[in-house]
Design a protein around this nucleic acid. Structure first.
Length: 494
RNA sequence: GAGCCAUUAGCUCAGUUGGCAGAGCACCUGACUUUUAAUCAGGGUGUCCCAGGUUCGAAUCCUGGAUGGCUCACCA
């Protein structure tokens, strides 16, 4: 058992030094400040919400002391557990001198187990009158202030445990996140999807246009990439006969950090054999609106200054129509790459001179249309050059059966009828390689094994990806992706 | 990666023209057996982010750096 020594106290501030002295004092009195298992019978929320059922009953609770109000020979405190908090009340008469002294000397932040009977105070607050209390963990650091909580966002993300302890709305956000993921699984299970796990370390980083993280396997002496998307592995499973698969996957992209980007993020990807993009739109509408209903109890959600109506069906708008509507440019009457670039210059868009018709269409779309798409909108028919894994439209081969879903101007989902023609797919990869050679290090890599898989035959399929972090942001009305990721990436201090 | 802004007690924040470092909460001592942002009396606990510079004197002005936030770029 370590003793408190001069060498480790002299660096501590007053508050921490006092707590270490209390710790030693407890041990001197034969009280172990770090206890063992405690079997609670109830959680605080259940008692507060069902007082009539609990009135006069004996309960055992475990949690953290969050506030103290001493009154001499009787003292109030607040106990917080996973579900919420409750007031507790200890009296010298009930506890005896030794236990009462320990109770009175508890610090905010200490973790205790206690037993007592439920009653209501004169002022109407549900309270547990303590008959027995045991210290389970002595807290040696002061918690942030009860009234303002922890606001410094840097500290909140670096010390999420403190953030969760003192900011109830943060705790609520992560409970909602957990419920969203749970409901996604339930929904997909109900539709007959199989949850699978595919590699996170890829010899070829495929399935998306993004820069990967690179790592090294020592025993195999080979370079590996952290996955940027699970797509190509999941579609190999379609080849293998798993007709409905999904993966709730962590993927990694070696790019800038912002309020909407974390280097590791969570996506839902699913594939449905013998389906197409129409099935994906229906599935997306139903999935998102029913999750909102189940998790929030409504499909009308407030996000920042807008009420978003998630009730299906959602607006469907071909990209060409959307661009025409918001920018005035009709790409149906623009026929060459050069002409398209000229129009982009006319709109003062920055271009490098290598863009194709489809690249420019997408640029104009991002600039003029995306921010306007507040209510859920499926944008359809993406150009083939920016959709190397999507099936070409039958009547317009320069476009694909692809949609992206936008809500509040943000991309929330991406889906297509999957390209299952191995010869076309190989050509698409080769075009991507040309882009790579031209210096685009986010262009797709060639994946020969994936081509080989397609050559065995992949059923026609619809595929869908949904950004879970962004969905959670929408449903929790949070403004930064860091508010929905428990431990967002931060630069180390010093 | 670029621009703008921020960093002062454990936490939330003031700090005037460059002139002794402040408040609330928390904490410590005492009083108080149904309080609840408990109350009452007393107590200030500090590497003013770091390193230089200007100055009689710097939390304050200047230069460089660190970390963070926002915007932009890249992307989902």
């Amino acid at each position: 058992m370590p003793e408190v020594t001069m060498s480790n106290t002299e660096e501590l501030n007053e508050l921490m030094r006092v707590r270490r002295e209390k710790l030693q004092e407890l041990r001197d009195h034969g009280i172990e400040p770090y206890g063992n298992k405690y079997e609670a019978t109830d959680y605080t929320q259940g008692i507060v919400e069902n007082f009539e059922k609990y009135d006069g009953k004996n309960v055992k609770l475990a949690g953290r002391i969050m506030a103290k109000r001493g009154h001499g020979k009787a003292s109030f405190a607040n106990l917080q557990d996973m579900t919420g908090g409750i007031q507790v009340y200890g009296r010298l008469n009930d506890l005896g001198e030794e236990a009462y002294e320990m109770y009175e000397k508890l610090d905010i932040g200490d973790i205790v187990g206690l037993e007592g009977s439920v009653f209501k105070t004169r002022r109407g607050e549900v309270t547990v009158s303590i008959t027995d209390i045991v210290l389970l963990s002595k807290s040696l650091r002061p918690l942030p202030e009860k009234w303002h909580g922890l606001k410094d966002v840097d500290l909140r993300y670096r010390q999420r445990y403190v953030d969760l302890t003192v900011n109830p709305e943060v705790r609520k956000t992560f409970v909602i996140r957990s419920n969203i993921v749970k409901e996604i699984r339930k929904h997909l299970e109900g539709l007959g999807f199989l949850e699978v796990e595919t590699p996170m370390m890829h010899p070829i980083a495929g399935g998306a246009a993004a820069r990967p993280f690179v790592t090294h396997h020592n025993a195999l002496d080979m370079e590996l990439f952290l996955r940027i998307a699970p797509e190509l592995y999941l579609k190999r499973l379609l080849v293998g006969g798993f007709d409905k698969v999904y993966e709730i996957n962590r993927s990694f992209r070696n790019e800038g950090i912002s309020t909407r980007h974390n280097p590791e993020f969570t996506m839902l990807e699913l594939y449905q054999a013998y389906g197409d993009i129409e099935d994906m739109m229906e599935l997306t509408e139903n999935l998102v609106s029913s999750i909102a209903q189940k998790v929030l109890g409504t499909d009308k959600v407030q996000y920042e200054d807008q009420e978003i109506n998630l009730a299906a069906p959602w607006k469907r708008l071909p990209m060409l129509d959307a661009v025409k509507e918001y920018s005035g440019l009709d790409f149906n009457s623009i026929h060459t790459d050069e002409e398209a670039r000229g129009k982009a210059k006319g709109l003062k868009l920055e271009i490098n001179g290598n863009e194709s018709w489809g690249d420019i269409l997408n640029l104009v779309f991002e600039e003029f249309v995306e921010p306007k798409l507040i209510q859920p909108t499926f944008i359809l028919d993406y150009p083939v050059e920016i959709s190397p894994l999507a099936k070409r439209k039958k009547d317009r081969p320069e476009l694909t059966y692809r949609f992206e879903l936008f809500i509040y101007g943000r991309e929330m989902a991406n889906a297509f009828s999957e390209l299952n023609d191995p010869i076309d797919q190989k050509q698409r990869f080769e075009n991507q390689l040309k882009k790579r050679d031209a210096g685009d290090d986010e262009a797709h890599m060639m994946d020969e094994d994936y081509i080989q898989a397609l050559e065995y035959g992949m059923p026609p399929a619809g595929g869908l990806g949904i950004g879970i972090d962004r969905l959670v942001m929408l449903l929790t009305n949070t403004q930064s992706i860091r508010d929905v990721i428990l431990f967002p990436q931060m630069k180390p201090r010093d």
